[in-house]
Amino acid sequence: MTGTGTLARLSIFPLPGALLFPGLQLPLHIFEPRYRALVTDALARDRRIAMIQPRGTQDDAPLFTIGCVGHIDQVEALDDGRFNIVLEGRSRFRLIRELPATTPFRQVEAELIEDDDDEALSAVERASFEREARRFADAQGYSVDWDSVARLDDISLINGVSQIAPFDAAAKQALLEADGLEARCELLIQLMQFFGRHDGGDDNRVTLQ
């Protein structure tokens, strides 16, 4: 359940493999000069940094369409100019176009996506998800505090698992792009079922490439 939002100029951090979901936190160690400049600029303005996946490893790689705006919630400035920061996900955004920029970091025009903060799963959907999550955790040998999980609201649960699950970046990008809590929950279940059947090897992550 999403709506269209306002347009915004966003400074982006296209870091491969680092995805942020609304309501979740992402710790980052900032050491490259261009991204130290990005953090310095964000701290002087609105503390916003937009995380989005690049479609390649080159500096000017094309970008995926959907990302997440983060707010610098915690910051530690180190003596040598590096930063340790914690971003808190605020809202997804839809890329419209990349903007010409004189800054060392890239900037885009984007539409902020107004996700429904009151979305909830049905009792059947929640039970189905928790059942599959238990199977997945048991199969992977994860230790989970299920009492704490039971106390999470539906959005925190689904977004939290989406961000921390051991899937590859393509799978997590698909989760971020899923429109609505129910769709994201259904995709998570499918990914856990697929991963649960994966027969191992040197790289056990789900791959949707």
Rank of each mutant, 00 (worst) to 15 (best):
F129I: 00
E125F: 05
V86P: 02
E119A: 11
E109V: 15
R135P: 03
R90V: 15
A110Q: 09
D115V: 04
F83T: 11
V75G: 04
D116M: 06
L121R: 01
Q107P: 09
D117E: 13
R135E: 13
L121A: 00
S128A: 14
R90C: 11
F93Q: 02
Q74N: 08
E111V: 14
S91Y: 09
F83N: 11
I85S: 12
D117R: 11
P100V: 12
E88Q: 11
V108T: 10
F129A: 02
V108L: 03
S91F: 10
A123F: 00
E119T: 10
P104R: 00
R135C: 12
L87F: 01
V86C: 02
E109S: 12
R92K: 15
E76Y: 08
E98T: 14
A127D: 09
R94E: 15
L78G: 14
R90S: 13
L95M: 05
F136N: 02
P100D: 13
S122A: 00
T102G: 03
P104D: 04
A127C: 07
D79L: 06
L95P: 04
R106P: 05
L112S: 06
R94L: 05
E119Y: 02
A127N: 07
F93L: 06
G89Q: 06
A110D: 11
D116I: 03
D116K: 07
R82V: 07
R131W: 08
D117S: 12
L95A: 01
N84F: 06
D80K: 09
A127T: 13
L99N: 10
E119P: 14
N84A: 06
S91C: 13
R106T: 12
S128I: 03
D116N: 14
